[in-house]
Design a protein around this nucleic acid. Structure first.
Lengths: 159, 159
DNA sequence: ATTATTGATTATCCTTGACCTTCATTATAG
DNA sequence: CTATAATGAAGGTCAAGGATAATCAATAAT
């Protein structure tokens, strides 16, 4: 049985695509049984494949009537220009460059003003921590900032 | 008998929506009887669903002519909302608590799914840095996480 | 070395029921 | 008449038990 994880991943993915809904609900136990695996295998698939970084949110309830719900947030068809987020941001980015990039993205309606605000706050917090709490160099901080920025933007733009 | 708690939750919610009033009054015993359950089930629903976190307050009176009243909290100005956020997040918050809070905020339409996604990514990045790069304790990471979360949410409440 | 699989253990949610507390009304004592 | 005690009518607490899901460490596969 090669690649159980991918099979389960594909199954969930297909569920999300077939139904028009932006989310699917599952019974962990049932799904595990239908794939002939242990229930915790489902958690592995979710943790490794359906992450916020990839544009998914996962909600769940334990106990009686428990469930797992997977939501797809990101666009199916990302803007062509955003395919190059990695190139644009690069491995290191300054506050000012990040600031300017976010402004451009908002002007192009790829992100909203509120989304931009959250991102700016997160970047600022990261920089502040790096400086005050961990005494990191400018370059190191800019590297971390680039990583954080890419993750946030990718989650919105890429599938 | 699928999900008694959710049925009762929905019933109360509908009551609040149908009437224009910002509150509803109930008789615990009667409500329990109409759902064919034990009275303390009502307390469970109130405790787990109609919390301040979710924007509700519950008042009650025992003895003869007793009652339970559920109020929906309305925020006058952004500052009130901010204080509310600060109280709920506190000085330290776990991944799971943060996750849950964001889900609730989205359900209350205080944030969008995309905004929630960005915030989840930022929190995960913060936690990951704290753990892998700086070897911080769980508590320290939760403290940083609370600070970051509050800042992001505050920025939105004012927007 | 990284990713995937498993299973034992732990945590959480829902439901129920026995027992506790509080309040209003009524009965009784002075 | 008043003050207090008894009664009945709410609602509150808590702990147990069953139903799920999450976590984590060990092991296997790639």
């Amino acid at each position: 049985m090669p690649n159980l994880t991918r099979a389960i991943e594909k199954y969930i993915h297909d569920l999300l695509e077939s139904g028009e809904a932006a989310s699917v609900s599952l019974r962990r136990k049932e799904l595990a049984e239908s794939f002939g695996c242990v229930p915790s295998q489902i958690n592995y698939v979710l943790r490794s494949r359906f992450t916020p970084e990839r544009g998914f949110l996962v909600e769940s309830q334990r106990g009686g009537h428990g469930y797992i719900r997977i939501l797809r947030i990101a666009f199916e068809d990302p803007e062509e220009k955003m395919n190059h987020i990695d190139d644009i941001v690069g491995d290191s980015i300054s506050d000012q460059e990040a600031h300017r990039l976010l402004q451009i993205l908002q002007e192009r309606d790829l992100i909203t003003a509120r989304e931009r605000l959250i991102i700016e706050v997160a970047l600022r917090h990261s920089d502040e921590m790096g400086q005050s709490d961990f005494d990191l160099s400018q370059h190191k901080r800019n590297t971390i900032q680039a990583e954080l920025l890419k993750r946030m933007l990718r989650s919105l733009m890429l599938a």
